[in-house]
């Protein structure tokens, strides 16, 4: 009998250091584990615990997937202490993910902060895989310090194909890009407000101020796609932890357009 609360085993093949606090975990998925970009999984360390993460790899690759994880607490610390090879558990994928079809033939502005770049990397790779549908991509990334910026090599590659602007809150002597929070690099100079979408993922505080700034710049509620981070246990719309207004974020999200959220009094709590 299928038990929806139990994970399937996955083999951890490789661990890649991204920054002092962030690592990418690569899993092989011979048993055909697939996800859509923006969907999340519950990753578990048997006997220790489980936490929700959004895969950061290209969803078109069927033989492996990657998850980029920041060390912030009990489970993530245990994950960071792992050595390969190891067997972990995975449930999912859960949620709806990014509605790629809605982005077709539009300008796509992608705004990310901190470990929020993880889901966005998967999105960017999915968009790059269909260059005929998604031509006009603009990246705006922020990090606390240059050392905290992840995927540096890849970002270099991406900036060759699309417009990419970086910023850090606090620079060091080698930093040549912008300094300031991510909202300071948001503008509409190369954006056609009538035919664009904007996708935001980052720490809650950054999402809030980015949303305010985007509205101020003239983006419409429906054009702004936000990833809501809520406490989650089941991922299945059953445990009740992730509720906001009439939604279970795990099932009706985690990505929402702002028009669905704006009237909820607790949206920025």
């Amino acid at each position: 009998m299928k038990n929806i609360y139990l994970p399937i085993p996955v083999a951890l093949e490789q661990i890649i250091d991204e920054s002092a606090t962030i690592k990418t975990f690569r899993f092989s998925s011979n048993d055909g584990f697939r996800f859509k970009t923006g969907q999340f999984v519950e990753l578990s360390l048997p006997g220790i615990g489980e936490a929700p993460f959004t895969p950061s790899s290209d969803p078109n690759i069927s033989t492996r997937f990657e998850i980029t994880i920041m060390n912030v607490g009990r489970v993530t610390q245990a994950l960071h202490a792992l050595k390969t090879p190891a067997t972990l558990g995975v449930r999912g994928p859960y949620g709806l993910g990014y509605p790629l079809e809605e982005f077709k033939n539009k300008q796509i502005l992608i705004v990310g902060g901190g470990v929020g770049l993880a889901p966005l990397r998967s999105l960017i790779l999915a968009l790059f895989a269909r260059p005929a549908d998604f031509k006009n991509i603009h990246l705006r990334f922020g990090a606390r310090t240059p050392d905290d910026l992840i995927y540096k090599q890849e970002i270099k590659e991406w900036s060759k194909i699309c417009d990419c602007v970086l910023t850090v809150d606090k620079a060091d002597s080698d930093w040549k890009d912008n300094v300031g929070v991510v909202t300071t690099i948001l503008d509409t100079d190369s954006i056609d407000l009538k035919n664009c979408v904007v996708i935001v993922c980052g720490p809650p505080i950054m999402m809030k101020f980015a949303t305010f700034k985007l509205l101020e710049l003239g983006f419409k509620d429906k054009q702004i796609y936000l990833s809501m981070e809520k406490n989650m246990s089941c991922g299945l719309g059953k445990c009740g932890h992730c509720r906001i207004g009439p939604f279970f974020v795990c099932r009706e999200g985690p990505v929402f357009t702002f028009d669905k959220l704006k009237d909820l009094p607790e949206v920025w709590d």
């Binding site: 006997g47 489980e50 089941c234 059953k238 445990c239 009740g240 932890h241």
Partner: peptide, 24 residues
Amino acid sequence: CHCFLLSDEKRGKENARLKLWDAC
């Protein structure tokens, strides 16, 4: 009230997964 929590623990050599009522 239906909220719960999934929790993992070690029981000797075994790994166990529990479902516990939770309180908002």
